[in-house]
Amino acid sequence: MQTLLITGPGGAGKTTVAAATALAAAREGRRVLLLTDAPHVQEDDRLTVARVDSGQEFRDELVALQERGSAVLGMVGARPLTAEELTELPGAEEFALLRAIRRAATAPAPGTDLVVVDLPPLHRAVATLSLPAQLRRYLARLLPAERQAARALRPVLAQLAGVPMPAQWLYETAARWDEELAAVQAVVEADTTEIRLVAEPGPTAAEALRLGRLGLALQELPVSSVVANRLLPQGSADPWLAGLAAQQEKHTAEWAAELPVVPLAHLGRDPHSPQDLALLAETEGLAPRPPAPRSGWVVEDRRAEDGVLVWEVPLPGARKSELDLIRRGDELLLTAGPYRRIVPLPSVLRRCSVSGAALADGVLRIRFTPDPGLWPRTP
C-alpha cells in the first residue's frame, strides 16, 4: 500500500491539494484514505476521510498510562487525573498524527491501496517526521537494553522491599513506546511512502522549499514531486498580473529542473466547495504514480585509488556555509541549515577517522581514512 505525505509552506494550499489529490486518485479507481481536517471533502465508495482528534488521543493515552502506573502513583501519594480535566499539551497534535499514519498504513480499511496525509506546514512536518527516530535514540540512551536485562530480578526485589519497583514500570513503558515508535518509523521510511510538496511559486516559497527539502533529505526522506499551486494564466492584459504570472513561470521552471512539477491553476477564488475540489482533481498528473525505490546514503570504497572511504550524503539545495559535522564516537552530528541530525555510522566507517568533506552538486561527500590499528593488513 502506498502512503503519500503532503506538506508545504503555511498558506500554500496544502490541505486543498491533499483533498484534490485523494479525489483524483479515487477517480482513477484506487481506494483512498485521506487523513485531513479539511471540512469540504465528500466521501464516496472509493474515498474515505479520517480526521485526527489529538485531544482525545492525548486524554486516552495519559489515562492509560496512569492506569498502568497506578501502583507507582499510589506509592508516592499522587492523585490521578481524570479524562475530563485533561487538556492536550504542545506536541500532542504531532504524536496523534503519527499514530494515525501508523494505523492507516498497518491496519487500513479493506481494499485501501493509497493513504493521503495532510501534514502540518513544512517546517513542522520535518520535525514531526523526524520524531520517531529521535525519540527512539533518546530512549536507547536513557534506558539502554543491557540494563533492561535486569528486569527479571525486579519482581524478587519488589517482594523483599514490600513495594512495587518503579523501574520495572518505567522499562515496560519505555519498551512499549519504543515498539510503537519503531512501527511509525518503519512507515515513514518505507519505500512505499513518498513526500509531495505544495507551494505557490515565488521567491519566499522558493527559499522555504529549499530549506524544507534540505531538512527532509537530512532525515533520508526524499521529495517525489512539487505542486505549483495557484498558477495565474499567461498573457494577461493587466501588467501587474502579467508580471506576477511571469515570476510564477520562472520559479516553476526552476523547480522543474530538479523535481517533477504538477501545475495547478488558480480558480479565481478560494476553493471552498466539493465542486471546487472536483475541478482541481481534474488536473493531469495530480493523482500519484507508484513511488520509485529509495536510494540510501552510499559508502564508496576508494581505498585502492585514494586510501579513503567516501560516504555520500544527498543534500539538495545545501550551501557550504550552512553545513557542519562532528564525529562523536560511533555517531556523526550533521547540521544542515536550521536542521540537525545525529546519525549512527555504518559499521565499516566506525573503524575510520573523518579526514575531510566536500559539497558538490547537492551531495556532501565525507571522507574517512581507515585506522591502521583496526583494519587487517593486506598481504
Rank of each mutant, 00 (worst) to 15 (best):
E61P: 02
W169I: 05
V52L: 14
L73T: 04
G215Q: 05
N229S: 06
L323H: 06
Q134V: 12
G373Y: 07
Y339D: 06
A245S: 14
A152T: 14
V49P: 04
S295P: 05
G29I: 10
P222F: 11
P288V: 01
P90I: 05
G329A: 12
S225N: 12
P155R: 10
D178C: 13
A78N: 10
L209R: 00
R341H: 15
A358L: 14
A20T: 02
T252L: 13
A18R: 00
Q56H: 11
P316T: 09
R367G: 03
D118I: 00
V41K: 01
S321D: 11
R294M: 04
E331V: 11
V262G: 05
I366H: 00
W311T: 04
Q219M: 08
L216V: 14
L34T: 07
A25Q: 00
R46D: 05
D371Q: 15
A109P: 05
S355R: 01
W169V: 14
T16P: 00
R103G: 09
L129T: 08
A245Q: 13
V310I: 13
V343S: 04
L259A: 04
R141A: 15
P314S: 10
A92C: 10
G11T: 12
R151P: 02
T192G: 06
A246C: 09
V115C: 04
